[in-house]
Write a protein that binds this DNA or RNA. Structure first.
Lengths: 226, 226
DNA sequence: GACTACCTAGAGTATATACTCTAATAATAC
DNA sequence: GTATTATTAGAGTATATACTCTAGGTAGTC
């Protein structure tokens, strides 16, 4: 593999594991056993590395959220969207952690991320619309759909942060993609009241699959209620 | 005012305005026109300052979220809870921004924050329960209430981050408490499907008061839909 | 072999950051 | 007044971080 690609890959790995704030360019170089000079030959600065990683992330999510316009959506489609989005979130999980700082540092990133958010919100809203077309959820007026989509976005993008902060031990280590996907349970909770009678049972069953297994799993206290 | 208190106050102010990551102990000292030595006479380190500020935050929210057990809740109570929580969020807004990093750095904070989260979740759930007692929302099984409460928590605590990242300009400056309170619109969106017919209209009207005024206001793109 | 374009090493730098140390000054107690 | 304690200044330090610079290698081409 080209050195340039190795830098991107290792940076992502280290960022995900330790947080962007805790990973310096020197760390990355040391991890790859190359010189700092070499790293800076391939990238002008740390921001550029992050920006390229973001572009990969963006491309991935855009690919996942492509919505077929020539047919109705199925429950399987919905499951796929949810699974995919959480997979993406997992692969680039460092990104949302230090988002605000990163956007403050790089105007390109801020502007791109804003558009990315808008595309995602539009996609979520469109999915709701098509789920209504398919008779899975009740149709809703556009305004409500927009507000609901925003709530879905908030839950999705911040579920990981919640898990990490609710964990007893240090955040980075003990978090699995399996736990992360319990976020799907939360998203489906949002949809619950809007389901049509025809699909209610099926979606409830799907939701059950993502139910947090153990109270302890979620890092919650001993509250047995949960 | 005592120097010690001035340090806490100014730190909070600077953290809120610039982010904890961008504010050093030297900055704080310079801002107060005192020496670094003086600052470190009053606080062992930066973590201790943050920890004390967190304790104030905690105390404030706990005070707000005290739920009367001797009477039914009213819509005014609900409004008060929402307004208060967002006020608290605003006053200590630096905190949620760098939460993960802060918790990784200070085990005391991690453990305290975890319990704080659990108290808040329990309070939200209890509010739902009492809103059902008051006939404002339909009663729900405990499991659903817990999941709903968690969604409410996710929306509340991450609404500000969304606003800041959706903003076109640099995050810190152009964000007002007024905009922040549009988060209440989102929270009420969550409650919408669970309202009783008797209260539906009233809550819808309340929700309208927090509707984002202009599409531009929310930092969204030119999507007119929103 | 010589020219060129690409790649790499590694020492080095300017700046920042959290924090320390000593000595001096103010406040209080007796 | 004197002894003691609390507070403050300000220079200084160890470490880290993002990034630079020079010199040298390597690969391909003619």
């Amino acid at each position: 593999m080209k050195t340039r690609d190795k830098i991107l890959l290792s940076s992502l790995e280290l960022f995900n594991e330790q947080g962007e704030r805790n990973v310096t360019t020197n760390h990355i170089a040391a991890y790859l056993a190359i010189s700092p000079g070499n790293l800076y030959y391939h990238f002008r600065n740390k921001s550029d590395i992050i920006y390229e990683i973001f572009q990969e992330y963006e491309k991935l999510v855009d690919f996942y959220l492509d919505i077929p316009e020539d047919r109705l959506l199925t429950l399987d489609d919905m499951t796929f969207y949810l699974e995919s989005v959480f997979d993406g979130l997992w692969s680039y999980r460092f990104f949302h952690r230090d988002l605000e700082y990163l956007l403050d540092r790089d105007p390109r990133l801020r502007s791109d991320y804003r558009e990315f958010t808008n595309r995602c919100l539009a996609a979520i809203s469109r999915i709701f619309e098509k789920l209504a077309d398919a008779g899975i959820v009740e149709p809703q007026p556009e305004g409500l759909r927009a507000a609901m989509s925003l709530n879905v976005w908030l839950v999705i993008t911040n579920w990981m942060a919640f898990l990490k902060t609710a964990h007893a031990a240090k955040a980075s280590a003990c978090l699995t993609i399996h736990e992360l996907k319990q976020g799907i349970y939360q998203v489906l909770t949002l949809e619950l009241p809007y389901l049509t009678p025809a699909y209610r049972e099926q979606v409830m069953a799907l939701r059950e699959k993502y139910r947090p297994t153990m109270p302890e799993q979620k890092g919650m206290l001993e509250s047995p209620a949960y």
